[in-house]
Lab assay of single mutants.
Amino acid sequence: DYYQTLGLARGASDEEIKRAYRRQALRYHPDKNKEPGAEEKFKEIAEAYDVLSDPRKREIFD
């Protein structure tokens, strides 16, 4: 679930989605986080943001 990936509730505003993405992206960015799995988590976060930030894709997902 993309909302869960970003730590959001369904119905989150565009601003909340953007804030959550930035927070998670900084936390799991491969240059900042060298833990195994961080790069994969970063890709999941980017995919979630891509879907939720686009109104058309978000409507299909919801």
Rank of each mutant, 00 (worst) to 15 (best):
Q24F: 10
A38W: 06
K32E: 05
V51E: 10
R23W: 13
Y3V: 00
A25Y: 14
E40Q: 15
Y2N: 04
D1Y: 06
E40K: 15
A9Y: 02
P55G: 07
E15T: 11
L8M: 03
K18H: 14
T5H: 15
Q24T: 06
P30Y: 06
Y21V: 02
R56L: 08
R56G: 12
D31W: 13
R22A: 14
G11F: 03
K41I: 06
S13I: 04
D14P: 08
L6W: 00
E16Q: 15
Y21Q: 02
I17H: 00
R27V: 13
D54F: 01
L8C: 13
E40L: 15
L52I: 04
Q4M: 12
Q24R: 07
Y21D: 02
A25F: 15
R58N: 03
R22I: 14
P36M: 15
L6D: 01
Y2V: 00
Y21T: 03
S13L: 05
E39H: 13
D54H: 14
A38Y: 02
Q24L: 10
A20L: 00
R10S: 08
E39T: 12
E47P: 00
A48T: 01
I60M: 11
D62S: 09
G7C: 02
Y49N: 08
A20K: 02
A12M: 02
A20Y: 02
D54Q: 13
K57D: 03
F42D: 04
G11C: 06
D14T: 09
A12Y: 00
H29M: 14
E59D: 05
Y49T: 05
A20P: 00
D54R: 03
F42M: 05
I60G: 13
L26H: 13
I45G: 02
P36W: 14
L8W: 00
G37C: 10
N33M: 14
I60N: 13
E44Q: 09
A12R: 00
V51D: 03
A20G: 08
E59Y: 02
S13T: 12
I45K: 05
A46Y: 06
D14L: 14
E35N: 08
E59C: 04
A38Q: 10
R10L: 08
V51F: 15
T5N: 05
L8Q: 03
E44A: 14
E15D: 14
E59K: 08
E35G: 12
R58K: 06
D14A: 12
L26D: 11
S13Q: 10
E15R: 06
K32Q: 07
Y28H: 03
E40Y: 15
E16Y: 00
